[in-house]
Amino acid sequence: MATWAAKFPAEFKKLTDEQARALEGTLASHALEGLTPDKTFVANLVAVRTGTIDRAEYLRRAKAWSASKHRVVRAAG
Rank of each mutant, 00 (worst) to 15 (best):
A62I: 08
T3G: 03
K7M: 09
T36M: 10
R55N: 11
H70F: 05
A64V: 03
Q19V: 03
A28W: 05
R61G: 12
Y58R: 01
L27M: 10
G77A: 10
S66M: 13
L32F: 12
K69C: 02
A10R: 09
V42M: 04
L23C: 02
Y58I: 07
K7S: 04
D54F: 04
A20F: 02
E24S: 00
Q19S: 02
K14D: 08
T3C: 05
G34F: 06
Q19H: 03
A76S: 06
G77R: 00
R60E: 02
R21F: 08
A43H: 05
L15M: 09
E24R: 01
A43N: 07
E11S: 01
S29K: 10
L27V: 10
E57H: 07
D17M: 08
T16V: 15
G25N: 06
W65I: 10
T36E: 13
T52F: 01
H70S: 07
A10Q: 09
S66G: 13
A22I: 08
W4E: 04
R71H: 12
H30C: 13
R71F: 05
R60Y: 12
S68P: 02
A22D: 03
V73C: 08
V42K: 00
D38N: 12
A67N: 11
A22G: 07
R21I: 14
M1G: 12
A31C: 11
P9G: 08
D17C: 13
A62F: 08
A75V: 13
E24F: 12
T16C: 14
T36H: 14
T50P: 05
N44S: 12
A43S: 08
V48N: 01
P9R: 03
G25R: 02
W4D: 02
T36F: 11
D17R: 12
E18W: 15
V46A: 00
T50C: 03
L23W: 00
V72H: 13
A76H: 09
D38H: 07
L27R: 00
H30I: 14
R21T: 10
R60P: 05
L59Y: 15
E18M: 14
F12A: 03
I53A: 07
A43I: 05
K7E: 12
T50Q: 04
T52Q: 15
T52Y: 06
F12E: 05
A64Y: 07
G77Y: 02
T40E: 14
Q19T: 02
T52I: 06
K13S: 12
P37D: 04
T26Y: 04
S68D: 08
Y58F: 12
